[in-house]
Simulated scan of single mutants.
Amino acid sequence: MKKKYSKKRLKRLIDAYVETDGVKSLAGLALYLGIDSAELNQLQSDSKDGYSEIIAYARTCIEKDIVENGLRGKYNASMASFILRSSFGYRDKGELPPQGPVKIEVAEELLGDAV
């Protein structure tokens, strides 16, 4: 990939992909670029070459597309929600882990003879 596209060309291709019709996805982007998903993930994790910022930009564009079209009803809301949770780290509000230390107290009457 690095040999295939300059960073400038990669950004232009991502912008062109975002403007295409159809459901946007990371796999779809990879295919559009002529690479596989593993190579796309490798580009994102390689921060020293400058490609990771471009792939992060692409992920944000795809995320925006899924959110907006899910809310507008263009995409199935359940599927949009699933994709956002599985690929972009979204959670339902009730799924947040407790913040800070958790203190558990057991009432003496529940302990019975153990006291």
Rank of each mutant, 00 (worst) to 15 (best):
84 L>V: 00
101 P>R: 07
2 K>R: 15
57 Y>E: 10
94 G>H: 07
47 S>H: 09
37 S>A: 11
61 C>K: 11
34 G>Y: 06
5 Y>G: 05
103 K>P: 00
110 L>N: 08
32 Y>H: 14
77 A>V: 14
6 S>P: 00
18 V>H: 07
79 M>G: 00
109 E>W: 08
114 A>Y: 13
50 G>S: 05
33 L>G: 07
44 Q>D: 10
74 K>R: 02
3 K>E: 09
31 L>A: 09
93 K>V: 11
42 Q>M: 05
23 V>E: 15
41 N>L: 06
46 D>R: 12
8 K>C: 03
12 R>E: 15
96 L>W: 13
100 G>C: 08
50 G>H: 01
38 A>E: 07
15 D>A: 09
42 Q>P: 00
27 A>Y: 05
32 Y>P: 15
79 M>Y: 06
74 K>A: 07
33 L>M: 12
82 F>D: 00
83 I>K: 07
90 Y>A: 04
58 A>Q: 07
78 S>F: 15
34 G>V: 05
30 A>L: 01
64 K>E: 11
3 K>M: 06
69 N>W: 07
110 L>C: 05
60 T>D: 14
36 D>G: 15
6 S>A: 01
75 Y>M: 08
81 S>Y: 09
58 A>I: 05
70 G>D: 11
2 K>C: 10
58 A>V: 05
72 R>A: 14
67 V>H: 01
19 E>C: 06
34 G>Q: 06
96 L>S: 06
18 V>A: 11
72 R>Q: 13
104 I>T: 09
98 P>G: 10
42 Q>S: 10
8 K>V: 06
44 Q>F: 04
73 G>N: 05
26 L>M: 14
50 G>Q: 04
27 A>K: 15
62 I>C: 03
66 I>M: 01
35 I>V: 12
115 V>P: 01
10 L>G: 09
68 E>I: 14
102 V>R: 04
39 E>G: 02
33 L>Q: 12
39 E>F: 01
103 K>W: 02
75 Y>I: 08
60 T>R: 13
88 F>T: 01
50 G>A: 03
6 S>E: 00
48 K>N: 13
73 G>F: 12
6 S>F: 00
8 K>P: 03
4 K>M: 11
46 D>H: 10
83 I>E: 00
77 A>C: 10
55 I>D: 15
58 A>P: 05
72 R>Y: 10
46 D>M: 12
97 P>A: 01
84 L>I: 00
59 R>C: 02
103 K>R: 14
104 I>H: 02
57 Y>F: 13
49 D>L: 14
81 S>T: 15
63 E>F: 01
109 E>H: 12
20 T>L: 09
25 S>L: 04
77 A>K: 14
82 F>Y: 13
114 A>C: 12
85 R>M: 12
47 S>Y: 08
